[in-house]
Design a protein around this nucleic acid. Structure first.
Lengths: 230, 230
DNA sequence: CATTCAGTCAATTATTTAATTGAATAATAT
DNA sequence: ATATTATTCAATTAAATAATTGACTGAATG
Protein backbone atom coordinates (compact mmCIF):
# COMPACT_ATOMS: atom_id res chain seq x y z
CA UNK A 1 0.00 0.00 0.00
CA UNK A 2 2.49 2.54 -1.10
CA UNK A 3 -0.01 4.45 -3.13
CA UNK A 4 -1.10 7.45 -1.10
CA UNK A 5 -4.43 7.60 -2.87
CA UNK A 6 -5.37 4.23 -1.52
CA UNK A 7 -4.86 5.30 2.03
CA UNK A 8 -7.96 6.12 3.86
CA UNK A 9 -8.71 9.77 4.25
CA UNK A 10 -7.96 9.63 7.93
CA UNK A 11 -4.29 9.48 7.09
CA UNK A 12 -4.61 12.85 5.47
CA UNK A 13 -5.88 15.43 7.88
CA UNK A 14 -9.51 16.42 7.70
CA UNK A 15 -8.88 19.43 5.56
CA UNK A 16 -6.93 17.57 2.93
CA UNK A 17 -9.46 14.79 2.95
CA UNK A 18 -12.31 17.16 2.33
CA UNK A 19 -10.62 18.86 -0.54
CA UNK A 20 -9.75 15.46 -1.93
CA UNK A 21 -13.40 14.49 -1.79
CA UNK A 22 -14.52 17.70 -3.40
CA UNK A 23 -11.96 17.04 -6.10
CA UNK A 24 -13.54 13.65 -6.75
CA UNK A 25 -16.83 15.36 -7.50
CA UNK A 26 -15.20 18.03 -9.62
CA UNK A 27 -13.20 15.46 -11.53
CA UNK A 28 -16.36 13.57 -12.27
CA UNK A 29 -17.50 16.72 -14.06
CA UNK A 30 -14.14 17.22 -15.67
CA UNK A 31 -14.69 15.46 -18.95
CA UNK A 32 -16.87 16.57 -21.85
CA UNK A 33 -18.36 13.14 -22.33
CA UNK A 34 -19.42 12.95 -18.74
CA UNK A 35 -20.97 16.38 -18.85
CA UNK A 36 -22.91 15.36 -21.90
CA UNK A 37 -24.05 12.18 -20.19
CA UNK A 38 -25.05 14.08 -17.08
CA UNK A 39 -26.93 16.57 -19.17
CA UNK A 40 -28.91 13.75 -20.76
CA UNK A 41 -29.44 11.94 -17.50
CA UNK A 42 -30.73 15.18 -16.01
CA UNK A 43 -33.58 15.00 -18.51
CA UNK A 44 -34.74 11.68 -17.23
CA UNK A 45 -33.77 8.15 -16.39
CA UNK A 46 -31.97 6.45 -19.27
CA UNK A 47 -30.32 3.12 -19.96
CA UNK A 48 -26.65 2.80 -20.68
CA UNK A 49 -27.07 1.98 -24.28
CA UNK A 50 -29.65 4.69 -24.85
CA UNK A 51 -27.06 7.09 -23.50
CA UNK A 52 -24.27 5.54 -25.52
CA UNK A 53 -26.32 5.80 -28.68
CA UNK A 54 -27.39 9.34 -28.00
CA UNK A 55 -23.85 10.49 -27.45
CA UNK A 56 -22.10 8.32 -30.00
CA UNK A 57 -19.90 6.70 -27.40
CA UNK A 58 -19.20 3.00 -27.21
CA UNK A 59 -21.20 1.12 -24.63
CA UNK A 60 -18.14 0.29 -22.59
CA UNK A 61 -16.94 3.86 -22.67
CA UNK A 62 -20.31 5.24 -21.67
CA UNK A 63 -20.57 2.66 -18.92
CA UNK A 64 -17.25 3.70 -17.50
CA UNK A 65 -18.01 7.37 -17.63
CA UNK A 66 -21.32 6.74 -15.94
CA UNK A 67 -19.58 4.88 -13.18
CA UNK A 68 -17.21 7.75 -12.81
CA UNK A 69 -20.18 10.04 -12.38
CA UNK A 70 -21.60 7.63 -9.88
CA UNK A 71 -18.42 7.67 -7.84
CA UNK A 72 -18.70 11.42 -7.82
CA UNK A 73 -22.15 11.11 -6.33
CA UNK A 74 -23.79 12.76 -9.30
CA UNK A 75 -25.89 9.89 -10.61
CA UNK A 76 -27.30 6.64 -9.30
CA UNK A 77 -28.21 3.48 -11.12
CA UNK A 78 -30.85 0.85 -10.71
CA UNK A 79 -31.40 -2.36 -12.56
CA UNK A 80 -34.63 -2.94 -14.46
CA UNK A 81 -34.59 -6.35 -16.08
CA UNK A 82 -31.72 -6.42 -18.47
CA UNK A 83 -31.25 -2.70 -18.37
CA UNK A 84 -29.39 -0.50 -15.97
CA UNK A 85 -31.03 2.87 -15.68
CA UNK A 86 -29.18 5.98 -14.59
CA UNK A 87 -30.67 9.07 -13.07
CA UNK A 88 -29.37 12.10 -11.17
CA UNK A 89 -28.38 11.10 -7.66
CA UNK A 90 -29.29 14.27 -6.01
CA UNK A 91 -31.25 17.40 -6.61
CA UNK A 92 -28.05 19.24 -5.83
CA UNK A 93 -26.41 17.80 -8.93
CA UNK A 94 -28.47 19.94 -11.28
CA UNK A 95 -27.73 23.25 -9.57
CA UNK A 96 -24.10 22.26 -9.60
CA UNK A 97 -24.20 21.85 -13.34
CA UNK A 98 -25.97 25.20 -13.57
CA UNK A 99 -23.33 26.90 -11.42
CA UNK A 100 -20.67 25.44 -13.64
CA UNK A 101 -22.41 26.83 -16.69
CA UNK A 102 -22.66 30.22 -15.10
CA UNK A 103 -18.96 30.45 -14.46
CA UNK A 104 -18.13 29.09 -17.88
CA UNK A 105 -20.49 31.50 -19.58
CA UNK A 106 -19.20 34.48 -17.74
CA UNK A 107 -15.57 33.82 -18.02
CA UNK A 108 -14.70 31.98 -21.11
CA UNK A 109 -14.54 33.97 -24.25
CA UNK A 110 -14.76 30.78 -26.17
CA UNK A 111 -18.10 29.88 -24.70
CA UNK A 112 -19.30 33.38 -25.31
CA UNK A 113 -18.33 32.95 -28.89
CA UNK A 114 -20.25 29.72 -29.09
CA UNK A 115 -23.31 31.21 -27.49
CA UNK A 116 -23.33 34.37 -29.52
CA UNK A 117 -22.35 32.81 -32.77
CA UNK A 118 -19.22 33.17 -34.74
CA UNK A 119 -19.65 36.59 -36.19
CA UNK A 120 -21.17 38.37 -33.27
CA UNK A 121 -18.13 37.50 -31.28
CA UNK A 122 -16.04 39.44 -33.70
CA UNK A 123 -17.78 42.60 -32.63
CA UNK A 124 -16.91 41.89 -29.03
CA UNK A 125 -13.24 42.10 -29.79
CA UNK A 126 -12.77 45.84 -30.07
CA UNK A 127 -9.77 46.44 -32.24
CA UNK A 128 -6.85 48.65 -31.38
CA UNK A 129 -6.26 51.61 -33.70
CA UNK A 130 -3.10 52.05 -35.75
CA UNK A 131 -2.37 55.21 -33.86
CA UNK A 132 -2.62 53.57 -30.48
CA UNK A 133 -0.63 50.57 -31.61
CA UNK A 134 2.21 52.82 -32.81
CA UNK A 135 2.33 54.51 -29.45
CA UNK A 136 2.28 51.28 -27.50
CA UNK A 137 4.94 49.72 -29.69
CA UNK A 138 7.17 52.63 -28.80
CA UNK A 139 6.39 52.11 -25.14
CA UNK A 140 7.05 48.41 -25.47
CA UNK A 141 3.81 47.59 -23.65
CA UNK A 142 2.48 45.29 -26.29
CA UNK A 143 3.47 42.22 -28.26
CA UNK A 144 2.54 42.44 -31.90
CA UNK A 145 2.08 39.24 -33.86
CA UNK A 146 1.58 38.78 -37.56
CA UNK A 147 -0.62 35.73 -37.97
CA UNK A 148 -0.48 35.56 -41.74
CA UNK A 149 1.51 32.82 -43.44
CA UNK A 150 5.21 33.32 -43.19
CA UNK A 151 5.63 34.20 -46.85
CA UNK A 152 3.35 37.20 -46.51
CA UNK A 153 5.22 38.34 -43.43
CA UNK A 154 8.46 38.13 -45.35
CA UNK A 155 7.00 40.23 -48.13
CA UNK A 156 6.30 43.06 -45.73
CA UNK A 157 5.12 43.56 -42.19
CA UNK A 158 4.58 46.09 -39.44
CA UNK A 159 7.90 46.94 -37.79
CA UNK A 160 8.25 45.18 -34.48
CA UNK A 161 5.83 42.40 -35.39
CA UNK A 162 6.76 38.79 -34.80
CA UNK A 163 5.67 36.22 -37.34
CA UNK A 164 3.40 33.67 -35.68
CA UNK A 165 1.28 32.09 -38.38
CA UNK A 166 -2.12 31.11 -37.08
CA UNK A 167 -1.41 27.45 -37.69
CA UNK A 168 1.58 27.64 -35.36
CA UNK A 169 0.01 29.81 -32.70
CA UNK A 170 -1.06 27.10 -30.30
CA UNK A 171 2.29 25.47 -29.99
CA UNK A 172 4.14 28.77 -29.85
CA UNK A 173 2.07 30.32 -27.11
CA UNK A 174 4.92 29.99 -24.67
CA UNK A 175 7.11 32.24 -26.76
CA UNK A 176 4.85 35.17 -26.05
CA UNK A 177 6.11 37.46 -23.32
CA UNK A 178 3.76 36.88 -20.42
CA UNK A 179 1.65 39.50 -18.81
CA UNK A 180 1.74 41.69 -21.85
CA UNK A 181 -1.17 42.38 -24.09
CA UNK A 182 -0.94 40.77 -27.50
CA UNK A 183 -2.12 42.47 -30.67
CA UNK A 184 -2.68 40.35 -33.74
CA UNK A 185 -3.13 41.44 -37.31
CA UNK A 186 -3.60 39.74 -40.65
CA UNK A 187 -4.74 40.69 -44.12
CA UNK A 188 -7.49 43.11 -43.40
CA UNK A 189 -11.03 43.63 -42.21
CA UNK A 190 -12.37 40.63 -44.05
CA UNK A 191 -9.72 38.23 -42.96
CA UNK A 192 -10.65 35.97 -40.04
CA UNK A 193 -7.18 34.92 -39.01
CA UNK A 194 -6.68 37.63 -36.44
CA UNK A 195 -10.11 36.94 -34.97
CA UNK A 196 -9.20 33.32 -34.59
CA UNK A 197 -5.88 34.21 -33.06
CA UNK A 198 -7.44 36.54 -30.52
CA UNK A 199 -10.08 33.97 -29.61
CA UNK A 200 -7.40 31.31 -29.12
CA UNK A 201 -5.28 33.60 -26.98
CA UNK A 202 -8.18 34.72 -24.83
CA UNK A 203 -9.25 31.17 -24.34
CA UNK A 204 -5.90 30.64 -22.69
CA UNK A 205 -6.23 33.66 -20.50
CA UNK A 206 -4.00 35.90 -22.54
CA UNK A 207 -5.20 39.44 -23.05
CA UNK A 208 -5.40 39.95 -26.78
CA UNK A 209 -6.89 42.33 -29.33
CA UNK A 210 -6.95 42.75 -33.08
CA UNK A 211 -5.37 45.59 -34.94
CA UNK A 212 -7.99 47.53 -36.85
CA UNK A 213 -8.03 46.28 -40.42
CA UNK A 214 -4.74 44.65 -41.37
CA UNK A 215 -1.39 44.98 -43.04
CA UNK A 216 -2.53 46.41 -46.38
CA UNK A 217 -4.36 49.21 -44.59
CA UNK A 218 -1.33 49.89 -42.40
CA UNK A 219 0.82 50.29 -45.44
CA UNK A 220 -1.81 52.33 -47.26
CA UNK A 221 -1.92 54.72 -44.30
CA UNK A 222 1.68 55.60 -45.06
CA UNK A 223 3.07 53.98 -41.92
CA UNK A 224 6.51 52.37 -42.00
CA UNK A 225 6.92 48.74 -43.01
CA UNK A 226 9.74 46.23 -42.79
CA UNK A 227 10.65 43.82 -45.55
CA UNK A 228 12.64 40.67 -44.97
CA UNK A 229 16.13 41.02 -46.35
CA UNK A 230 17.02 38.44 -48.96
CA UNK B 1 -6.51 28.84 -41.93
CA UNK B 2 -4.91 26.26 -44.13
CA UNK B 3 -4.77 23.58 -41.51
CA UNK B 4 -8.22 22.60 -40.32
CA UNK B 5 -6.72 21.03 -37.22
CA UNK B 6 -5.37 24.38 -36.12
CA UNK B 7 -8.85 25.65 -35.59
CA UNK B 8 -9.92 25.88 -32.03
CA UNK B 9 -13.19 24.62 -30.72
CA UNK B 10 -14.96 25.96 -33.73
CA UNK B 11 -14.03 22.74 -35.50
CA UNK B 12 -16.24 20.86 -33.07
CA UNK B 13 -19.97 21.12 -33.08
CA UNK B 14 -21.30 23.79 -30.76
CA UNK B 15 -22.56 21.21 -28.33
CA UNK B 16 -19.26 19.42 -28.04
CA UNK B 17 -17.47 22.71 -27.70
CA UNK B 18 -19.78 23.85 -24.94
CA UNK B 19 -19.24 20.69 -22.95
CA UNK B 20 -15.54 20.95 -23.60
CA UNK B 21 -15.53 24.44 -22.12
CA UNK B 22 -17.55 23.38 -19.11
CA UNK B 23 -15.03 20.60 -18.64
CA UNK B 24 -12.23 23.14 -18.55
CA UNK B 25 -13.89 24.85 -15.61
CA UNK B 26 -14.64 21.57 -13.86
CA UNK B 27 -11.11 20.36 -14.39
CA UNK B 28 -9.83 23.53 -12.84
CA UNK B 29 -11.70 22.43 -9.72
CA UNK B 30 -10.58 18.85 -10.10
CA UNK B 31 -7.52 18.88 -7.93
CA UNK B 32 -7.35 19.12 -4.14
CA UNK B 33 -4.57 21.69 -4.23
CA UNK B 34 -6.54 23.95 -6.49
CA UNK B 35 -9.61 23.68 -4.32
CA UNK B 36 -7.57 24.62 -1.32
CA UNK B 37 -6.10 27.57 -3.17
CA UNK B 38 -9.50 28.69 -4.34
CA UNK B 39 -10.85 28.41 -0.84
CA UNK B 40 -8.09 30.67 0.43
CA UNK B 41 -8.43 33.09 -2.44
CA UNK B 42 -12.11 33.31 -1.62
CA UNK B 43 -11.14 34.81 1.75
CA UNK B 44 -9.50 37.72 0.03
CA UNK B 45 -6.83 38.71 -2.39
CA UNK B 46 -3.52 36.97 -1.74
CA UNK B 47 -0.08 36.77 -3.25
CA UNK B 48 1.33 33.62 -4.75
CA UNK B 49 3.79 33.04 -2.01
CA UNK B 50 1.31 33.74 0.75
CA UNK B 51 -0.84 31.05 -0.84
CA UNK B 52 2.08 28.71 -1.29
CA UNK B 53 3.10 29.14 2.32
CA UNK B 54 -0.42 28.70 3.62
CA UNK B 55 -0.91 25.49 1.71
CA UNK B 56 2.58 24.07 1.97
CA UNK B 57 3.00 23.91 -1.78
CA UNK B 58 6.11 25.01 -3.60
CA UNK B 59 5.88 28.43 -5.16
CA UNK B 60 6.15 27.05 -8.67
CA UNK B 61 3.51 24.47 -8.01
CA UNK B 62 1.13 26.99 -6.50
CA UNK B 63 1.77 29.34 -9.39
CA UNK B 64 0.88 26.69 -11.91
CA UNK B 65 -2.24 25.66 -10.10
CA UNK B 66 -3.31 29.26 -9.86
CA UNK B 67 -2.84 29.67 -13.56
CA UNK B 68 -4.91 26.60 -14.10
CA UNK B 69 -7.66 28.20 -12.01
CA UNK B 70 -7.28 31.33 -14.02
CA UNK B 71 -7.72 29.49 -17.29
CA UNK B 72 -10.87 28.05 -15.83
CA UNK B 73 -12.12 31.57 -15.21
CA UNK B 74 -12.26 31.08 -11.47
CA UNK B 75 -9.65 33.58 -10.37
CA UNK B 76 -7.96 36.63 -11.79
CA UNK B 77 -4.58 38.09 -11.04
CA UNK B 78 -3.19 41.56 -10.90
CA UNK B 79 0.32 42.72 -10.31
CA UNK B 80 1.09 44.92 -7.34
CA UNK B 81 4.77 45.77 -7.32
CA UNK B 82 6.68 42.58 -7.01
CA UNK B 83 3.64 40.62 -6.05
CA UNK B 84 0.99 39.02 -8.14
CA UNK B 85 -2.28 39.01 -6.26
CA UNK B 86 -5.02 36.53 -7.00
CA UNK B 87 -8.67 36.97 -6.24
CA UNK B 88 -11.87 35.25 -7.30
CA UNK B 89 -12.68 36.16 -10.86
CA UNK B 90 -16.36 36.10 -10.46
CA UNK B 91 -18.98 36.11 -7.78
CA UNK B 92 -20.28 32.96 -9.43
CA UNK B 93 -17.13 31.12 -8.38
CA UNK B 94 -18.12 31.00 -4.71
CA UNK B 95 -21.60 29.54 -5.28
CA UNK B 96 -19.99 27.00 -7.57
CA UNK B 97 -17.72 25.90 -4.79
CA UNK B 98 -20.69 25.79 -2.47
CA UNK B 99 -22.69 23.65 -4.90
CA UNK B 100 -19.76 21.31 -5.15
CA UNK B 101 -19.64 21.03 -1.39
CA UNK B 102 -23.30 20.31 -1.23
CA UNK B 103 -23.06 17.40 -3.62
CA UNK B 104 -19.97 16.08 -1.93
CA UNK B 105 -21.56 16.36 1.47
CA UNK B 106 -24.71 14.60 0.48
CA UNK B 107 -23.32 11.81 -1.54
CA UNK B 108 -19.92 10.74 -0.55
CA UNK B 109 -19.62 8.18 2.14
CA UNK B 110 -16.17 9.38 2.92
CA UNK B 111 -17.34 12.89 3.61
CA UNK B 112 -20.15 11.50 5.67
CA UNK B 113 -17.61 9.66 7.69
CA UNK B 114 -15.70 12.85 8.21
CA UNK B 115 -18.78 14.68 9.26
CA UNK B 116 -19.66 11.92 11.66
CA UNK B 117 -16.17 11.74 13.01
CA UNK B 118 -14.09 14.81 13.16
CA UNK B 119 -17.05 17.08 12.81
CA UNK B 120 -19.45 15.03 14.83
CA UNK B 121 -20.09 17.82 17.26
CA UNK B 122 -21.52 19.77 14.42
CA UNK B 123 -24.99 18.38 14.88
CA UNK B 124 -24.99 19.47 18.46
CA UNK B 125 -23.97 22.92 17.48
CA UNK B 126 -26.92 24.28 15.58
CA UNK B 127 -25.59 27.12 13.48
CA UNK B 128 -27.23 30.49 13.43
CA UNK B 129 -28.39 31.72 10.03
CA UNK B 130 -27.05 34.87 8.44
CA UNK B 131 -30.50 36.36 8.57
CA UNK B 132 -30.93 35.74 12.25
CA UNK B 133 -27.44 36.97 13.00
CA UNK B 134 -28.11 40.23 11.16
CA UNK B 135 -31.22 40.77 13.23
CA UNK B 136 -29.54 40.00 16.50
CA UNK B 137 -26.58 42.20 15.71
CA UNK B 138 -29.01 45.05 15.24
CA UNK B 139 -30.61 44.20 18.57
CA UNK B 140 -27.22 43.97 20.21
CA UNK B 141 -28.12 40.66 21.83
CA UNK B 142 -25.11 38.81 20.59
CA UNK B 143 -21.31 39.08 20.52
CA UNK B 144 -19.83 38.17 17.18
CA UNK B 145 -16.27 36.95 17.01
CA UNK B 146 -14.12 36.30 13.97
CA UNK B 147 -11.80 33.46 14.88
CA UNK B 148 -9.72 33.52 11.72
CA UNK B 149 -6.15 34.78 11.82
CA UNK B 150 -5.91 38.51 12.22
CA UNK B 151 -4.74 39.10 8.64
CA UNK B 152 -7.89 37.58 7.24
CA UNK B 153 -10.00 39.69 9.54
CA UNK B 154 -8.17 42.75 8.30
CA UNK B 155 -8.84 41.76 4.71
CA UNK B 156 -12.54 41.75 5.32
CA UNK B 157 -14.99 40.78 8.03
CA UNK B 158 -18.60 40.87 9.07
CA UNK B 159 -19.46 44.34 10.41
CA UNK B 160 -19.62 44.29 14.17
CA UNK B 161 -17.35 41.29 14.51
CA UNK B 162 -14.43 41.36 16.91
CA UNK B 163 -11.21 39.68 15.85
CA UNK B 164 -10.38 36.91 18.28
CA UNK B 165 -8.14 34.46 16.50
CA UNK B 166 -8.66 30.94 17.69
CA UNK B 167 -5.14 30.79 19.06
CA UNK B 168 -5.87 33.78 21.29
CA UNK B 169 -9.35 32.78 22.34
CA UNK B 170 -8.50 31.13 25.62
CA UNK B 171 -6.58 34.03 27.06
CA UNK B 172 -9.06 36.58 25.80
CA UNK B 173 -12.16 34.98 27.23
CA UNK B 174 -12.56 37.71 29.83
CA UNK B 175 -12.90 40.36 27.12
CA UNK B 176 -16.21 38.88 26.13
CA UNK B 177 -19.22 40.66 27.60
CA UNK B 178 -20.67 38.21 30.08
CA UNK B 179 -24.16 36.82 29.87
CA UNK B 180 -24.44 37.38 26.17
CA UNK B 181 -24.49 34.68 23.57
CA UNK B 182 -21.38 34.45 21.41
CA UNK B 183 -21.45 33.66 17.71
CA UNK B 184 -18.22 32.57 16.02
CA UNK B 185 -17.42 32.33 12.36
CA UNK B 186 -14.42 31.44 10.24
CA UNK B 187 -13.71 30.49 6.66
CA UNK B 188 -16.60 28.34 5.77
CA UNK B 189 -18.51 25.15 6.39
CA UNK B 190 -15.47 22.93 6.42
CA UNK B 191 -13.26 25.18 8.40
CA UNK B 192 -12.82 23.77 11.86
CA UNK B 193 -11.88 26.93 13.65
CA UNK B 194 -15.37 28.03 14.53
CA UNK B 195 -16.25 24.52 15.72
CA UNK B 196 -13.29 24.56 18.01
CA UNK B 197 -14.05 28.03 19.23
CA UNK B 198 -17.61 27.09 20.08
CA UNK B 199 -16.47 23.92 21.78
CA UNK B 200 -13.94 25.89 23.84
CA UNK B 201 -16.50 28.49 24.84
CA UNK B 202 -19.12 25.95 25.82
CA UNK B 203 -16.59 24.08 27.85
CA UNK B 204 -16.27 27.24 29.90
CA UNK B 205 -19.97 27.66 30.30
CA UNK B 206 -20.40 30.34 27.69
CA UNK B 207 -23.37 30.01 25.39
CA UNK B 208 -21.97 29.90 21.89
CA UNK B 209 -22.97 28.99 18.38
CA UNK B 210 -21.44 28.98 14.95
CA UNK B 211 -22.56 31.18 12.11
CA UNK B 212 -23.75 29.07 9.20
CA UNK B 213 -20.90 28.67 6.72
CA UNK B 214 -18.36 31.48 7.08
CA UNK B 215 -17.09 34.79 5.86
CA UNK B 216 -16.83 34.02 2.12
CA UNK B 217 -20.45 32.92 2.07
CA UNK B 218 -21.51 36.02 3.98
CA UNK B 219 -19.82 38.16 1.41
CA UNK B 220 -21.16 36.06 -1.45
CA UNK B 221 -24.66 36.54 -0.08
CA UNK B 222 -24.26 40.23 -0.77
CA UNK B 223 -24.23 41.22 2.88
CA UNK B 224 -22.10 44.16 3.98
CA UNK B 225 -18.48 43.71 4.97
CA UNK B 226 -15.90 45.86 6.67
CA UNK B 227 -12.32 46.13 5.58
CA UNK B 228 -9.56 47.40 7.82
CA UNK B 229 -8.37 50.82 6.76
CA UNK B 230 -4.70 51.08 5.88
C1' DC C 1 -29.82 -25.30 -20.10
C1' DA C 2 -27.73 -23.03 -23.65
C1' DT C 3 -28.31 -18.47 -25.99
C1' DT C 4 -28.76 -13.75 -26.27
C1' DC C 5 -28.83 -9.17 -24.60
C1' DA C 6 -27.26 -5.37 -21.52
C1' DG C 7 -23.70 -4.01 -18.78
C1' DT C 8 -19.49 -4.37 -16.30
C1' DC C 9 -14.70 -5.56 -15.46
C1' DA C 10 -9.64 -6.04 -16.46
C1' DA C 11 -5.85 -5.24 -19.09
C1' DT C 12 -3.58 -2.61 -22.57
C1' DT C 13 -1.99 1.51 -24.81
C1' DA C 14 -2.02 6.37 -25.69
C1' DT C 15 -2.71 10.75 -23.88
C1' DT C 16 -2.91 14.12 -20.14
C1' DT C 17 -1.75 16.00 -16.08
C1' DA C 18 1.16 16.82 -11.83
C1' DA C 19 5.37 17.95 -9.36
C1' DT C 20 10.07 19.22 -9.55
C1' DT C 21 14.11 21.56 -10.89
C1' DG C 22 16.54 25.23 -12.59
C1' DA C 23 16.52 29.10 -15.77
C1' DA C 24 14.22 33.38 -17.19
C1' DT C 25 11.75 37.67 -16.33
C1' DA C 26 9.80 41.82 -13.88
C1' DA C 27 9.74 45.14 -10.48
C1' DT C 28 12.22 47.10 -6.94
C1' DA C 29 15.99 48.28 -3.96
C1' DT C 30 21.07 49.25 -3.44
C1' DA D 1 24.41 49.05 -13.13
C1' DT D 2 23.74 45.12 -9.99
C1' DA D 3 21.36 42.57 -6.73
C1' DT D 4 17.20 40.89 -4.72
C1' DT D 5 12.68 39.25 -4.45
C1' DA D 6 8.50 37.41 -6.50
C1' DT D 7 6.73 34.97 -10.01
C1' DT D 8 6.52 32.48 -14.27
C1' DC D 9 8.36 29.43 -17.76
C1' DA D 10 10.51 25.19 -19.81
C1' DA D 11 11.86 20.71 -19.53
C1' DT D 12 11.87 16.52 -17.26
C1' DT D 13 9.87 12.59 -15.05
C1' DA D 14 6.22 10.29 -12.64
C1' DA D 15 1.48 9.46 -12.20
C1' DA D 16 -3.30 9.52 -13.52
C1' DT D 17 -6.85 9.18 -16.93
C1' DA D 18 -9.16 7.86 -21.39
C1' DA D 19 -10.48 4.74 -24.98
C1' DT D 20 -10.36 0.17 -26.65
C1' DT D 21 -10.59 -4.67 -26.65
C1' DG D 22 -12.15 -8.92 -25.20
C1' DA D 23 -13.61 -11.68 -21.36
C1' DC D 24 -17.16 -11.99 -17.79
C1' DT D 25 -21.84 -11.78 -15.19
C1' DG D 26 -26.90 -11.38 -14.54
C1' DA D 27 -31.41 -11.56 -16.39
C1' DA D 28 -34.61 -12.92 -19.87
C1' DT D 29 -35.96 -16.07 -23.77
C1' DG D 30 -36.48 -20.19 -26.53
Amino acid sequence: MTDPKSRSASALGPKEALFAQLAVVAKALGHPNRLELLDLVAQGERSVDALATATGMSIANASQHLQHLRRGGLVTARRDGKHVLYRPADEAAIPLLAALRKVAERNLAEVQRLLDGYFRERDGLEPISRRELSRRLRDGTVTLIDVRPEAEYAAGHVPGAVSVPLAALKRRLRELPPGREVVAYCRGPYCVMSFEAVAALRKRGITARRLEDGYPEWKAAGLPVDVEAG
